[in-house]
Design a protein around this nucleic acid. Structure first.
Lengths: 300, 300
DNA sequence: AATTCAATAAAACAAATGGATCATTGTTTT
DNA sequence: AAAACAATGATCCATTTGTTTTATTGAATT
């Protein structure tokens, strides 16, 4: 019999307790059931809840009004929300803070977005995703060459992966180019090479087409995508799933980028000495070109 | 909306995935939403769920039948039960503990990286960074035009910001181009415009030079960088600091990308209706061009 | 003991829900 | 090209839902 508290501090719960003594017998009976089975409120209809609490349906409506709500649905909405929040707050240790207190209203959105991202990173720390990450890294390490494909918003991830890989060595080819020439590099592709495909919803048609073409040429497909039912899942030898939901109307690419960074690191780690050497070479090269600086250039 | 944890092992989930390929387009769309938002199934009505999944109500009924249920209510009942069980089973926390003990050795690195990233995201939730984020978003919103500058590894962030902004409207110009032409767009820059500069250590000299040039032309500099002593800090009207340390020899750009995403969202949020309209227009445009697809193209 | 008044139960209601039917569309097969 | 087919969208229906209204009970006050 589940009756664990929805969460330690629930303002509505406190309110019900505070008003409890002033309620009539039937109201108390209804309130008691709500306190003891908060999830049920979100999960069943009002009449069903009334039946479970052995109370008239109307009593639930009255309870809502007594608590200052306009109707019963507002109570249900509240408990539904707590269920939702408990669900994505499985990295809940982070949820201690009441930062909004002294913050401007707009930063609510920012707070929620960043908080959610933090949780999504934490989700990638689970054994299953970790296993997939290492497996894919190993497959990448074994490949003669890695073609990197990601269009539209996924371009950021593909580009980043390619950029880092190109610092590390020569094995990476970025499938991108003007006027639809992006796929041309695949012309001479051989079966001992692989394609790393990045695509999240909405899936770019060109990405899917190129991926399929590559597969038909015998290349292994490794993909970073957003769900088990992504069109890429079916044709991929390895797949890593990363969340893309955020508290805005955009999808987020941050978890995907994190995945890319982890892959790069694991790849480098497989052969640490030569990775370090490659980075050193790159450093030297760029130093000669005066690519970097720690201070603003002086203006004459 | 928050994203759901890929739940550990749910037989129904597996079944949906198994049958997914055999479903029609609409059924897939419905199924996809169910997979991605399992708790919503338990929390809202069928019609509401259909609305959220952008699908006809009847499609949900059909989905139920395809999955072998007698009616939709059986699906809801299943997910309601899942929610109930998750509630009293805070044994889940314990499960996480011993599970990560049995992880493969290589995933230690991955685990630490991701864990660290999660913490860095959480750090951005502090009041101080939030204040800086909103302040910068307001400044960006006030500007007539936004030039976006980020080279080398910072390119990812700059490109992403520009990409999203270009979906939203016309105010963004990406300072990038072949053969060092990247800065040319600044030629006609006017003082009521701003430059968003992204640069982390090592700081690309070209970035600093262009930023300084812009400042001399009277443009405001807004920067995303990695420390208070970054060369950009001194010349910027607003600065956002984000961590770049990771458990590898690379610096991480994930927090910077997150910052970019938050900025985009806040900007859109300032004028939500027109942002939604712009996105709708972009959607329509891309739909006409057949840019996206949910399934692999058929090969003849 | 009669009256008042709040609390409860019962009934009635409109709105919504889940489900079924049928016409239309788009695709595949002949 | 026509026919057959499945998929989709629109409409309709019987239930169920949350809520309001009305009637009944029961206790407290006079």
């Amino acid at each position: 019999m589940p009756q664990s508290p929805v969460s330690q501090s629930d303002p509505l719960r406190e309110q019900i307790i505070a008003q409890f003594d002033g309620m009539s017998a039937q109201l108390q009976q209804a309130a008691r059931y709500v306190l003891e089975h908060p999830e049920e409120v979100a999960l069943v209809s009002m009449r069903e809840l009334a039946r479970l609490a052995a109370v008239q349906p109307a009593t639930m409506t009255r309870l809502a009004k007594v608590l200052g709500f306009q109707g019963y649905n507002e109570i249900r909405a509240h408990y539904a929300e707590t269920v939702r929040q408990r669900n994505d707050g499985f990295a809940a240790k982070v949820r201690q803070r009441d930062a909004q207190a002294a913050s401007p209203p707009d930063s609510d959105i920012a707070y929620h977005m960043l908080h959610g991202l933090s949780a999504q990173m934490a989700a990638l720390c689970e054994p299953e995703p970790l296993k997939r990450l290492t497996a894919m890294a190993e497959r990448l390490a074994a490949a003669k060459k890695v073609y990197v494909l990601g269009l539209r918003s996924s371009h950021v991830v593909a580009w980043h992966f390619h950029y880092v890989m190109s610092l590390l060595g020569e094995r990476s080819v970025h499938l991108d180019g003007p006027a639809g020439t992006g796929g041309d590099a695949l012309i001479r592709a051989k079966p001992d090479e692989v394609v790393l495909v990045v695509s999240i919803k909405p899936y770019a048609l060109d990405t899917l087409t190129l991926a399929q073409l590559a597969k038909e040429k015998g290349l292994a497909i490794l993909s970073i995508t957003d769900s088990e039912v992504s069109p890429l899942a079916g044709i991929s030898e390895h797949t890593i799933y990363c969340a893309t939901e955020s508290y805005s109307f955009f999808h987020t690419l941050t978890p995907a980028l994190a995945v890319s960074e982890v892959l790069c690191t694991l790849l480098a780690e497989f052969d640490r000495p030569s990775a370090l050497k490659a980075l050193q070479d790159a450093d030297d090269h760029l130093a000669h070109l005066n690519t970097y600086s720690n201070t603003l250039p002086r203006r004459e």
